[in-house]
Computed example of a mutant assay.
Amino acid sequence: MENKQKFLSLNLGTRDTAVISLQQITEVFQVSLADICGVPQMPSCVLGIYNWRGEMLWLVDLEEMLGYPPVLQEANLLSNMMAIVLEREGKHLGLLVRSLMDIEWLDSNQIKPPSAELFYPAMLPFLQGYLINSAEEMVLSLDATAIIQSPMWAINN
């Protein structure tokens, strides 16, 4: 039995693709790096706070969090990046990403569990698993709940 759900697909690193279930996404918007207020003594993947709808939204470099080189190494302060706002039980977290691709219907039953041989250790806690798409490429399925509940920012929420 198929279990089709809508996922937002995005680029990770130079050649990887990841998806996040649309059910866990509140909003997607463009953010200027100059508008992010840095916060000292945070993990380097935490870029800072952004004023989102009058609330403080923590913004995180998704790639750096998952063990890729930081997106900001290539960006300058005038760059606009895309932010994905995840929501879980009233908590929000913004993920800064290089670029968004598409909204896709995927069969969540096709998602295979992640294995330590295939992925960076930093990535494993945040993965639901992976699937192979029609182009025979591996697509990472990110676990929005695990990302929001990560101990990295538990102290701040």
Rank of each mutant, 00 (worst) to 15 (best):
R98T: 08
L118F: 08
T14F: 13
E104A: 08
L95D: 02
L127T: 02
Q73C: 15
R53P: 10
N109V: 01
A135K: 12
P151Q: 09
I111T: 01
P121Q: 10
E136C: 14
I132D: 04
L127H: 04
E89N: 14
Q30E: 04
E63D: 10
C45Q: 15
G13A: 10
L118V: 04
A122S: 15
N11G: 09
W153L: 12
I103G: 06
I132E: 09
P113E: 07
A154D: 03
L72Y: 14
I20L: 01
A75F: 12
I103T: 08
E89A: 13
N51T: 12
E104M: 07
L33Q: 07
I147Y: 04
A34T: 13
M138Y: 13
P113F: 07
N11H: 10
D61H: 15
L124S: 08
S141W: 05
V28L: 05
P114H: 06
I20E: 01
P40E: 13
V60N: 04
T17I: 15
L59F: 10
G48V: 14
P43D: 15
L10G: 02
E74C: 11
N156Y: 11
R53K: 11
V19K: 01
S99D: 11
L96P: 03
L22T: 00
I148M: 04
I147P: 06
D16H: 09
L33N: 08
E117W: 12
L77F: 14
H92S: 02
L95E: 02
M81T: 01
Q23Y: 01
Y50N: 03
F29N: 06
K91I: 03
G13K: 13
Q23F: 02
L66R: 11
S99F: 08
L95Y: 00
A146K: 09
N109R: 06
L22H: 00
P151A: 10
Q30R: 10
Q24M: 00
R53Q: 07
M42A: 12
G129C: 02
S150C: 06
L62G: 05
L106C: 02
S9A: 12
T26I: 07
M82V: 06
E64L: 12
A122H: 15
S141D: 00
V31Q: 06
L8N: 00
L12R: 08
L86W: 01
L72D: 08
L127A: 03
Y120Q: 11
N156L: 15
